[in-house]
């Protein structure tokens, strides 16, 4: 068995999946064996809308280093926004 703690959050926004754009309602974040990435473990993020079925999913599998860099990049981008914008 190869799975660890899963963080689940609700989100507002949109994602683009195999069938085009759809409204997001949930996201899960977990460290596990990847489906595709060439690594033993990856930090996986699924952006989801379960009400639209299993295929309403935007998935990424990142190395731990990449995931940490992403967190910093998101924080940096948000912090640089002009006052009152976000």
């Amino acid at each position: 068995m190869c799975t660890y703690l899963t963080e689940k959050i609700t989100v507002s926004g949109s994602g683009k999946g195999a069938d085009g754009w759809f409204t997001l309602s949930d996201a899960t974040v977990y460290l596990d064996h990847p489906q595709h990435a060439p690594a033993e473990h990856t930090l996986n993020i699924d952006f989801l809308n379960p009400a639209r079925g299993p295929s309403a999913r935007v998935a990424v599998e990142l190395t731990a280093e990449s995931a940490r860099a992403l967190v910093l990049a998101i924080e940096s981008a948000l912090a640089s926004a002009p006052p009152g914008l976000v």
């Binding site: 799975t3 295929s55 999913r57 998935a59």
Partner: peptide, 17 residues
């Protein structure tokens, strides 16, 4: 049952959740 017709990776994510 969770994901009839879905691709295996989407089905696995749904079952896992």
């Amino acid at each position: 049952r969770e994901a009839p017709g879905a691709s295996p990776d989407d089905a696995a994510a749904t079952a896992r959740a």
